[in-house]
């Protein structure tokens, strides 16, 4: 059984709320990814955590882009490490909730708000 643990600091909050960081200790096995860790949190700790992804592991849908330690990455291809990792939503996109931002092309949005 695995004894590796990552400490994920995740930016939580919706527009109009004061954002905060929540910390989660996430067990993992070598090779597992940040997206695996976020899915683990949703199943075992807090299902209200919002993340966007579709293809899970294939890096085909390109929907799970977030900031990890200040760098823009795909959560599904970034490996978990035995360290503190800071996870934030994309800074240049409109925040929807937690790690989810508005990334749809403007003409594919319900509001067509540009």
């Amino acid at each position: 059984m695995s004894t590796l643990k990552a400490n994920l600091r995740v930016r939580r909050g919706a527009p109009g709320e004061t954002g905060r960081f929540a910390s989660y200790e996430v067990p993992f096995e070598p090779g597992q990814t940040v997206l695996d860790g976020l899915r683990w949190i949703r199943v075992h700790v807090d299902p209200s955590l919002a993340i966007r992804f579709s293809c899970i592991n294939a890096n085909a849908c390109k929907e799970c882009m977030i900031r990890v330690d200040g760098k823009t990455v795909y959560a599904c291809t970034t490996r978990l490490a035995q360290a503190e990792m800071t996870l934030e939503p994309l800074p240049n996109k409109r925040l929807i909730r937690d790690l989810v931002t508005e990334i749809a092309p403007p003409d594919e949005r319900l509001e067509r708000d540009g």
Binding site: G31, C55, C76, T77
Partner: peptide, 9 residues
């Protein structure tokens, strides 16, 4: 196995 990332299974 081993764990692969960024690849479809």
């Amino acid at each position: 196995a081993p764990r692969l990332v960024g690849m479809d299974p």
